[in-house]
Design a protein around this nucleic acid. Structure first.
Lengths: 281, 281
DNA sequence: CGTACGGTTGACGACTCTCAAAACTTGTGG
DNA sequence: CCACAAGTTTTGAGAGTCGTCAACCGTACG
């Protein structure tokens, strides 16, 4: 056990594999302490601060670079320190299914624990800085810091919740709701990271959003344009500004589509026909 | 720690009762040993057999009875010992989103760990016998049996994989593929439990299947009827017989829908003008 | 400057949803 | 045991959303 941990008590040493992935310009961070990781994952673990000997290596990834792929032997989890990631399943006929867009603080690779092989693909959408956490090191850590065990359960539980919510989104067969909930979700995640919740830049293509939402890329584009014309949002390529987040949040399909005049409900806007693009202008 | 465990020490732990597989008769089982649970969850944990003092209570549920609901305080996980369960999210306007159909050996309630509140509803579809595993007891157990920790990670990892696969199904916008994959999935799960993989009875309504697959119940019914006419399956209410599982497994939508001549010619008669594309075996 | 890629917009059609009705099953009470 | 009610399932017809195909524009890149 301590032998394994000792392998990670090398503050100065850097392996050749590690050097290969280092990018050129920026003063990137190369190691994290246990306390750093807990902070990143938002685990309250006071005792971790006392441990200054343990360090975790960081790995750099360039845009479009694979982090791991389906079937690859599982040996480590990754924590996103900076940058944006896309996870996906190969969809057989060349069309992948996007599973999620992990960002700072998210834990990647947990789907590989069961079969000792990664069950999804992970690829960097931007320049990424990930903390590599070898799984056997993590398992040893838990013996010394039992609180970590609960924390990992909690994180995996949260990921299960997220998947369930995404299942709910995909189950609602309505493009506007899906896109709206996607925008709100991104807004909340950016807000949670300390960025603006009104103005942000998407890092993924329309095609990737479409796959994530179970739509075609044209429908995503059209829906964004419609929201733009309604002034719910302002779209400029991948830059999004939320102008009326409440409208997006309360967007529903009304059970009764009969009346085409009633605007007084929670949301109102969506009462009548499909061409609501002309409604509010 | 041992105080908690002591609460679950049954004075008369009869684990021999468990070895006999009592299915339809009514002498229900009321407790399980640690070894029983590991067997149920398919955790290889030899040392657990030595522990005969620890016992876990069983809980009975009648059809339609709630096991837990969204927002309810989380304190225990449940393992399905017998019966069929449905988990779901409340869909706002009365229409729920079905998340899954746990059956024997599945672990329920893990989505409640993160927020200490259950994040989904669980309801019994049949008479159910569940093993209740108080979460704090589980956490204490892990200190005595560290292998359990990895086992729980593994189970949650598997559940994450399942959700991801389901996301993939919902992302494929094609009713036939969804229904086919649902049938194959059920077949494999029954087979895995030792039942027939060709002939089984579904415990859920068409409506619940439809919600699970993101379709309307009529589409599910129609697709099953189409499979029936093609002699892929035989449908009799909720009783299903798989006649040509390979056809179901390889069912795809061809990128080009041009040709209208490509018949399977198994049955010749097809209700609609729908072309069923297959992958060659 | 040509190519490739990403994004927008339009036209058209098909898949699937909605509504509706009927056959069938299940549960309840007299 | 039957009758009635309520729910489930099947099937049909029509309509609507969204996917497919296509063209066009802008940007990046060699």
């Amino acid at each position: 056990m301590s032998k394994l941990l000792a392998n990670y008590c090398a503050p100065s040493a850097s392996s050749s594999l590690f050097d290969k992935k280092v990018r050129s310009s920026r003063p990137e961070q190369f190691t994290s302490s246990l306390a750093d990781i807990c902070k990143l994952l938002q685990i309250p673990l006071a005792r971790a601060a006392t441990n200054t000997s343990l360090s975790f290596k960081h790995v750099q990834f360039n845009p479009r670079q694979q982090i791991y792929t389906v079937g690859q032997s599982f040996d480590a989890l990754y924590i996103v320190n900076s940058g944006f990631v896309k996870t996906s399943l190969p969809g057989g006929a060349g069309c992948e299914q996007v599973l999620g867009f992990p960002m700072k603080g998210d834990l990647l690779g947990t789907d590989g624990i069961h079969q000792k092989k990664y069950a999804s693909n992970a690829v960097a959408l931007s320049h990424c800085n990930l903390v590599m956490v070898p799984f056997d090191v993590l398992m040893c850590l838990n013996k010394e810091y039992p609180e970590i065990e609960l924390a990992i359960y909690s994180i995996m539980s949260r990921d299960l919740m997220r998947d369930q919510i995404q299942l709910n989104v995909l189950g609602s067969r309505n493009s506007e709701v899906r896109v709206a909930r996607f925008l709100i979700s991104m807004s909340e995640r950016f807000s949670h990271l300390g960025y603006s919740d009104k103005e942000f830049k998407l890092r993924m293509t329309r095609k990737e959003i479409a796959s994530y939402l179970g739509l075609s890329l044209e429908t995503v584009s059209r829906t964004l344009s419609a929201f733009n014309q309604l002034d719910f949002i302002a779209v400029d390529g991948r830059s999004i500004t939320l102008r009326q987040p409440q409208r997006l949040k309360t967007l529903r399909r009304l059970p009764q589509l009969k009346e085409k005049t009633n605007e007084c409900l929670l949301n109102g806007q969506r009462a009548g026909s499909r061409s609501f693009a002309q409604l509010s202008l």
